[in-house]
């Protein structure tokens, strides 16, 4: 495999209470009412290592709120880690000279989970998608109209809509604006955060096929964050499973789907809805859902784990090899 294009070394991210004016006001009122809450530190990402080779597609899956988007933002260089370092082609992005840092930021693009919040409501689509390529000299003024048309069409958007504002689009159309914007600057690395979640399966297929073509033609690399396990299985070479800020399992895609090791991974695969199912009864989660505000001791999954043992409450399981290229963080593996 080629050298990593992106490498995360022991990165953590903690969020404290926010310090904007509204939050300060809220807290001072809460203090006066005596309802102030104790712990406000969220450990969103907890010592994660990750290396992505050029041309690779790495799937990132995990519970809602477990820190996937936070990892994505740190990879894209739009949020600094609290600890650890993010390396772009072997260089720590925190120590890059400004011009190289700008270059790295342009080459690593993110498609955001929340398409509406990430689009400036006062800009027309043509500016949202076209501004960066113009500013960075990727396209000449004279060729701009053709370039923009091609970018919009490629993401499945009708170029006739170029003068519209984001609120005039449907949810899936907005998502495609975000996709067109990210691809328009010709990135090398794409962080796709639920990038196709708002698309019907046919347009989703069109976008996923486009991603695969770009990978083949331009060696584009992907960190693919998604709750849709069918999509992750279809696209990824390797899958990482996260739970409450930590990576709990990683392996080649086929290995994860055929021999899931971690009990959380097994729970995920067991719940995957099947199109063949008819009018089934959905089951509530058994056990308590742990909170990143007060993470459970030992293994974070123990309050929900059907196999939890006394040791799981005390000791944090380490992520280690259980088979070539297959890593998992569960004490059950010690008994093998």
């Amino acid at each position: 495999m080629s050298a990593p294009i992106i490498e995360l070394r022991g990165i953590s991210k903690r969020f404290g209470p926010s310090y904007d004016a509204a939050a300060r006001l809220g807290r001072s009122i809460a203090r006066r009412l005596g309802t102030e809450q104790k712990n406000e530190i969220v450990q969103a990402v907890d010592r994660v290592d990750l290396s992505v080779a050029s041309g690779e597609v790495v799937g990132l899956v995990g519970e809602s709120g477990c820190g996937k988007s936070t990892i994505g933002r740190m990879v894209a260089g739009i949020m600094p880690p609290s600890e650890g370092s993010v390396l772009y082609k072997g260089q720590d992005i925190a120590t890059l000279p400004p011009d190289r840092a700008r270059d790295a930021k342009l080459k690593v693009q993110m498609i955001f989970q929340d398409p509406y919040a990430s689009l400036n409501p006062r800009l027309r689509v043509e500016d949202i998608v076209g501004e960066a390529p113009l500013v960075h000299g990727l396209v000449k003024r004279a060729d701009f109209a053709t370039y923009l048309d091609a970018q919009l069409r490629r993401a499945g958007l009708d170029p006739a809509y170029r003068r519209r504002y984001p609120h005039q689009f449907s949810g899936g159309q907005r998502q495609r604006i975000g996709i067109a914007r990210a691809l328009a600057v010709q990135p090398e690395f794409l962080v796709c955060d639920e990038a196709v979640a708002a698309l019907d399966v046919s347009i989703q297929a069109q976008i996923l096929n486009l991603f695969m073509d770009l990978r083949r033609e331009l060696d584009l690399t992907y960190l693919f964050i998604s709750h849709d396990l069918g999509v992750v299985e279809h696209l990824s070479d390797r899958v990482l499973i996260m739970y409450l800020g930590r990576i709990v399992e990683s392996a080649a895609t086929e290995e994860v789907f055929s021999r899931p090791n971690h009990p959380y991974t097994q729970a995920l695969l067991a719940e995957v809805p099947r199109i063949e199912a008819r009018k089934r009864r959905f089951t509530a989660i058994t056990g308590e859902i742990p909170s990143p505000l007060a993470p459970p001791s030992g293994c974070h999954f123990h309050p929900r784990c059907p196999h939890a043992m006394p040791r799981c409450v005390q000791e944090e399981p380490q992520l280690r090899d259980i088979a070539p290229g297959h890593r998992s963080a569960c004490h059950l593996n010690d008994r093998l």
Binding site: V61, G62, E63, S64, Q113, E194, A197, A198, H227, L229, A267, L268, E271, V272, P273, R281, F282, T283, A284, I285, I289
Partner: peptide
């Protein structure tokens, strides 16, 4: 759309 399948099942139930 933004929920993992175990939480999704919880909501659907």
């Amino acid at each position: 759309t933004a929920l993992d399948v175990t939480i999704q099942a919880q909501i659907l139930s």
